[in-house]
């Protein structure tokens, strides 16, 4: 294991990107911080800038207006990083698949930017906070 990966796995700092979601996945992500789930006790911390982040939590379908900004955020994130696709929307555009303003799914967009991106999927609509925590743990243990 390279030292980069080793440092990535300890205390992952995550940055949250909404790429056109219904707000629900996002609220559940904020919920992770609050007393019932309190992910900070596991060393997981939400940070305010992608440059500080080890992982991105992406929600939403990737709307036409959001996609360029999403790519920009990915470019700004320090590599290596893990991209977590949270929710049915970002995993595969979900119920909004047909939409004219939808460019997703998000994994395709991230791969356009970086074919070797590390992408983990947390399905659900919205995934329960427990599922998100478990997704993060599983993905990091697999590295």
């Amino acid at each position: 294991m390279s030292w980069k990966i080793w440092s990535l796995k300890k205390s992952p700092w995550v940055f949250h990107v909404n790429a056109g979601a219904c707000n629900n996945c996002d609220i559940e992500i904020v919920n992770l911080l609050t007393p019932k789930f309190d992910v900070e006790r596991l060393g997981i911390k939400l940070v305010g800038s992608p440059r500080h982040a080890d992982a991105l939590l992406v929600t939403g379908v990737g709307t036409r207006q959001a996609v360029p900004r999403l790519k920009e955020v990915y470019r700004q994130t320090a590599k290596p990083c893990v991209v977590f696709l949270v929710g049915a929307c970002s995993c595969g555009t979900g119920i909004f698949h047909e939409g004219y303003h939808v460019e997703g799914p998000v994994d395709k967009i991230i791969r356009e930017e970086d074919p070797n991106a590390i992408i983990a999927y947390v399905p659900g609509c919205p995934p329960k906070p427990e599922a998100m925590i478990s997704g993060i743990v599983k993905a990091l243990s697999a590295l």
Binding site: N18, G20, T63, Q65, A66, F96, E98, G99, Y100, H101
Partner: peptide, 14 residues
């Protein structure tokens, strides 16, 4: 606005 526009009214027609 627009970042979050998913075109729900049109999807609904389908």
């Amino acid at each position: 606005i627009s970042y979050n526009h998913r075109g729900i009214e049109k999807i609904s027609e389908s």
